[in-house]
Nucleic acid binder design. Structure first.
Length: 101
DNA sequence: GTTTTGACGCTAA
DNA sequence: ATTAGCGCCAAAA
């Protein structure tokens, strides 16, 4: 994808409130590419360790990439409970970027 | 140029 | 709550 897309994706993620999570699809929509949820995941897979990619999960509240990094730990640190790769209270802590635009 | 892959999403059983 | 099937689209093969 183009640089702009990637830039926008990062931007949305940085807007995510602490202790909340959002989804690939929601971000895709927010940046104007409703059907590019997969590409959102793609940009998230190659960047630094410190970037808060753990705030992004799939639409069913599942952590897909927890096998790569310690997302669960980081989330817990921020008050997000994860049980078997599944985010507890997902509906409660889900943050929709579309509301903030 | 064509096929496969993949950190996805939605709907219907 | 789970599973199966289909739609989606850029990147890699």
């Amino acid at each position: 994808m183009n640089e702009l897309f990637e830039k926008q994706v990062f931007e949305i993620i940085m807007m995510t409130p602490k202790g909340r999570v959002t989804s690939y699809g929601a971000i895709a929509k927010a940046v104007g590419f409703p059907n590019h949820s997969r590409q959102v995941g793609n940009v998230l897979k190659n960047y630094d360790e410190d970037f808060p990619a753990h705030w992004v999960c799939n639409s069913s509240g599942r952590i897909t990439a927890s096998c790569q990094r310690d997302f669960v730990g980081k989330l817990k640190l921020e008050g997000v409970e994860v049980k078997d790769g599944k985010i507890q209270n997902f509906k409660k802590i889900f943050w929709n970027p579309l509301q903030e635009l």
